[in-house]
Design a protein around this nucleic acid. Structure first.
Length: 506
RNA sequence: GGUCCCAUCGUCUAGCGGCUAGGACAUCAGGUUCUCAUCCUGAAAACCGGAGUUCGAUUCUCCGUGGGAUCACCA
């Protein structure tokens, strides 16, 4: 009982393979990961696929790709090795559907010890029972009908092929104490704990049995999970007691909330899966940074909020995790993502942005060959200009369609304040002359900035506004220098020429 | 309804008995600027209520109120 040797830290992430990863799951896994690394421990991935009806093909591969994207590295469990799933570690299998005989063995043990019993009640009976209880304002709980069954009858009915489940027999009148790292002591009376089904009629265990057995067998030392699990924790502790096992340390993390109703964040609140955010072009650095700060904060008067993954790993502490839920503020996430995009190395960002650029080019019917150097250069210029204005990579191009398509000019737009047609034409001619003299080698962002600002002189607006309007056809856009740089000399001069014709048709 | 959890600006939070209650996002007002975005400066904005403990409570205790989670052969 007295354990002077500090137990090895082993934490696990235990997702059910539903085909996507909830953003809250990512937060939990991040904390798991930080905690394991800080303590020289191990992070185990275990697939909780005990509900066959929810099986989704390719879910585990997907999960592993999301983890890889996030930068989280686990130590045991399934891995993706050249596109095939391979399990590593000494405590496998790490997939619950492959551990059925293990659970059955432990269920048998509980039955033999009188801690669990067979139940033949039909789903229909249980439903009407619960409805009755609800009507009488009683908490819905199993009425223990099948606890009265004689052994002979049980054997007979099993022999007859009748379907059954196994329930744990919760002792009455006991107090269960949950020692929680973030919540302190929480106590429950066993009188309010239901005789939970631990083995389903299809032979699969329920979550409650599987999680306890596996966590014990896999020597898990700390369980980090969402607060929604707190009410079922007494069931787990009772199971640990029935088996005579020491229970791990619990840490129930605060919930992620939706911004409107402040309810648990769920699918109906919009994008909630990591895959959704990946598809929208959020950077892993931004997602990790943002999500780590929901329900946790380094404290100590620290006002910095931008942290890299290694830095977070350094300063994270389980003791500083909050108790109350945190609203998932998408606006702030966008701001953080924009910050990361802005500060990203442009060459590296180009690689990340490629799929989004392709998608955009397809949408505007622009043939782009990423192997072709001119096309690459063009897209690189667009990205360079957009980099400091993008909130997410999926926004690539959408604010500046004039880079990709022919523009439709309106004459009024070209006129700066109360300038006359003559003046406007003069300004465009001036731009035409200056740009016309620049040879391709000098068509750089820096040089264009320099020469056009010089040409603009004191009264910048009267020169820059018509030029920008001529190049973009838009009221708002990046600077005319940047637009000219992106469009190139030929297109720029052509658009200026068109603008002049619009003002004074020849 | 039972059980359990939670409570500082609109939101994320700092604070761990004595502070002009600090920061970030959002908002508003300026500045930089040809426009938009960026960037810079500033403003407004919070301790849920009531008792108690204490010389002194945002902070500790209790009650209330409010919000949430959970009560499946789903996890």
């Amino acid at each position: 009982m007295i354990d002077h040797i500090k137990k090895e830290v082993r934490v696990r992430m235990a997702p059910s393979p539903t085909g996507f990863m909830h953003i809250g799951t990512l937060r939990t896994v991040l904390y798991d990961y930080f905690f394991a690394r800080q303590n020289g421990g191990k992070l185990v991935l275990r697939v909780e696929d005990t509900d066959q009806s929810r099986e989704v093909g390719g879910a585990v591969e997907n999960l592993l790709r999301v983890l890889d994207w996030s930068g989280i590295v686990h130590d045991e469990g399934p891995f993706l090795v050249s596109d095939r799933i391979e399990e590593r570690g000494d405590y496998g299998p790490y997939t619950q559907s492959k551990r059925l005989s293990i659970y059955q063995k432990y269920v048998g043990q509980l039955i033999d010890a009188g801690h669990a019993y067979y139940c033949f009640c039909t789903v229909e009976r249980l439903d009407t029972m619960r409805q009755k209880q609800q009507k009488m304002k009683q908490p819905p709980m199993y009425d223990r009908t099948c606890l009265q069954l004689e052994l002979a009858e049980i054997l007979e009915r099993i022999d007859a092929g009748e379907k059954y489940v196994v329930r744990m027999k919760v002792p009455r009148g006991k107090e269960i104490i949950v020692e929680d790292v973030v919540r302190g002591r929480v106590s429950f009376s066993t009188n309010t704990v239901d005789d939970q089904v631990i083995l389903k009629s299809d032979g699969f265990p329920t979550y409650h049995l599987a999680v306890v057995v596996d966590d014990h067998l896999m020597k898990i030392s700390h369980i980090l999970r969402g607060e929604e699990w707190l009410p079922s924790t007494p069931k787990h502790i009772i199971l640990y007691e029935m088996f005579g096992w020491e229970n791990p340390v619990f840490a129930h993390l605060p919930l992620l909330l939706s911004s409107d109703g402040k309810k648990k964040l769920s699918k109906r609140d919009g994008d909630v899966s990591v895959e959704d955010f990946m598809a929208e072009g959020y950077l892993p650095e931004a997602i990790v940074n943002f999500v780590a700060f929901l329900g946790w904060n380094p404290g100590g008067g620290q006002t910095q909020e931008i942290y890299s993954m290694p830095a977070l790993q350094e300063i994270f502490s389980l003791e500083k995790v909050h108790k109350s839920g945190a609203v998932f503020d998408r606006v702030k996430l966008g701001k953080i993502n924009a910050h990361y995009i802005k500060n990203y190395d442009t060459e590296a960002l180009f690689e990340l942005a490629m799929p989004f650029m392709k998608k955009f080019c397809d949408r505007v019917n622009m043939q782009m060959d990423f192997e072709r150097i001119q096309d690459r250069d063009f897209l690189m210029r667009v990205l360079t200009v957009e980099q400091e204005r993008l909130m997410k990579l999926a926004d690539f191009g959408v604010e500046n369609p004039f880079f990709f398509e022919d523009i439709v000019l309106e004459k009024e737009l070209l006129v700066w304040k109360d300038a006359t047609d003559i003046q406007t034409t003069q300004m465009l001619t001036k731009a035409e002359e200056v740009l016309g003299k620049i040879d391709e080698d000098h068509w750089t962002r820096v040089y264009l900035q320099e020469i056009l600002m010089e040409t603009a002189g004191e009264d910048r607006g009267s020169f820059l506004w018509p030029l920008r309007a001529a190049l973009t056809g838009e009221k708002r856009s990046p600077s005319p220098m940047d637009c000219a740089w992106v469009l190139g000399k030929d297109t720029s001069l052509a658009r200026i020429g068109n603008a002049k014709l619009l003002i004074i048709p020849s």
